[in-house]
Design a protein around this nucleic acid. Structure first.
Length: 421
RNA sequence: GCCGGCGUAGCUCAGCCUGGUUAGAGCAACGGUCUUUUAAACCGAUGGUCCGGGGUUCGAAUCCCCGCGCCGGCACCA
């Protein structure tokens, strides 16, 4: 039976309750983490008792001694429980714990004969009984479908995955730190919008019941951030989720995290330097050397990044002179796939710009395919938008690059999946 | 949406091409032995709608068709 393992564990739960032990108890206070407990021992033979809490990952029985590995938020430490230390009853109870159970343990730290730093269990408390078996200890969890659908299992079984997401958090913190330091304010603008603007993308649609009004999930941050520049904030940024109703790929998730910033009176040279600085602090936060590699290809993030006009890049790669949409098409087909090092591509043809003004001009000229007009944004701009420079960075892709992950799903905790069958 | 690959025990995988006893292994779980182990001690007994549905055949995990999911590519796009 597919769920027999549940019955075995549930039977254990009932047995524990019958013997007066709460399989989901509270009140245990760890005094240390596995890492700080390790650090505690230094050159000493033995420490004072410490208390740790975490999940049992491996259990090795050796007659009257049982070894187990306890995994907590940052690492692992070995536990040793001896029959002649804790007594028969406690020993049997410890030996009956399952891999996956969450326990609190108390005892001194010492080194085993083999030199392994180990907590000698003097007392322990079952905090949470686990009902499902964990993936195998040696091969771990490889099935990517389970890894993405049940990320909690992935995070338990694959510690390197935790590190990727810790790196992601550090990158975002570092980006905020740099922007805050430079006088940008961190703002939040609407996700639900009447007119999804700021980019070319098919939006997700939703509906507000009380207003009986269709709304769209935002596809970009730009238009609201610019409204804030009109309002007098001179440096603003937002790191937020945007939604695009498009296909999935190793580089596309329908919801992703975008950084956009706008700075009044800045030119694009200022913005390029800001991007370089953001990349450098992000790489440092991720622990990635500037001269590193992505998926086996070396990628040097040392500023200054190459700056080239799109027309020059197209000429270099195709030998052709082009402009307008043709230039962009040639660029996307022949240049973009070959760019490996960070490169600022300058002077995009105005025809492909998603900016409101040329779009408005196209609409005025009768191109109904152009983006719908955001009348309120126009009104805001009519009050006067200061000249400004802005940037947009896909945080997920930046983290992919910095943590050397092949798929965007590896840097999004819960990527979009089709319904489970 | 289109094309290709993949889907076998809780996990990691054989078996499929070339159809043929009751579908295998390791780890986990279960019963025993073992007092300092390091993925993996020893002995024993378990565990499967072989993704789902149809078809071909005396006989299908294996061949064919349809569906679902995952991965990759294309399209859309950042």
């Amino acid at each position: 039976m597919a769920e027999d393992f549940l019955h075995d564990r549930l039977a254990k739960v009932e047995k524990l309750r019958a013997s007066g032990i709460d399989p989901y108890s509270r009140g245990f206070q760890p005094t240390h983490s596995s890492a700080s407990a390790r650090a505690l021992i230094g050159e000493a033979e033995r420490t004072e008792p410490v208390s740790l809490a975490g999940r049992l990952m491996v259990k090795r029985l050796q007659g009257g001694v049982v070894f187990a590995d306890l995994q907590d938020g940052r690492g692992r430490i070995q536990l040793m429980a001896g029959r002649n230390i804790v007594g028969d009853e406690e020993f049997d109870r410890f030996a009956d714990l399952d891999v996956g159970d969450i326990v609190g343990v108390t005892g001194p730290i010492f080194r085993t004969r083999r030199g392994e730093i180990t907590l000698e269990v003097h007392s322990f408390q079952l905090l949470t009984k686990s009902l499902r078996p964990l993936p195998e200890k040696w091969h771990g969890l490889k099935d990517v479908e389970i890894r993405y659908r049940q990320r909690y299992v992935d995070l338990i079984a694959n510690p390197e995955v935790r590190e990727v997401f810790r790196a992601r958090t550090r990158v975002i913190t570092a980006i905020r730190g740099l922007l805050d330091e430079r006088g940008f304010i961190d703002v939040e603008t609407p996700v639900l919008q009447e007119v999804p603007g700021g980019g070319h993308a098919r939006p997700f649609m939703t509906h507000h019941n009380a207003l009986d009004r269709d709304l769209f999930l935002r596809i970009a941050l730009e238009l609201h951030l610019k409204r804030l520049l009109v309002g007098g904030f001179e440096r603003v940024y937002e790191i937020g989720r945007v939604f695009r109703n498009e296909g999935l790929s190793p580089r596309h998730n329908p919801e992703f995290t975008l950084l956009e910033s706008y700075q009044a009176y800045a030119g694009y040279e200022d913005v390029m330097q800001l991007v370089e600085d953001l990349v450098v602090v992000s790489a440092m936060a991720a622990g990635r050397p500037l001269e590193g590699a992505y998926q086996g290809e070396s990628v040097d993030l040392t500023p200054p990044f190459r700056r080239e006009r799109m027309a020059d890049l197209v000429l270099e790669h195709t030998g052709r002179h082009a402009e307008g949409e043709e230039l962009n098409d040639l660029f996307e087909e022949h240049v973009e796939p070959r760019l490996r090092q960070p490169t600022f591509v300058l002077d995009y043809p105005v025809e492909i710009s998603p900016l409101a003004r040329p779009q408005a001009a196209l609409r005025a000229a009768g191109n109904v395919e152009a983006h719908p007009m955001d009348e309120d944004f126009l009104r805001a701009v009519e009050y006067g938008l200061p000249p400004c420079g802005g940037l947009g960075v896909g945080i997920d892709r930046l983290v992919m690059l910095l943590t050397d992950q092949p798929s965007i799903r590896d840097v999004i905790l819960f990527p979009v999946m089709k319904p489970e069958t």
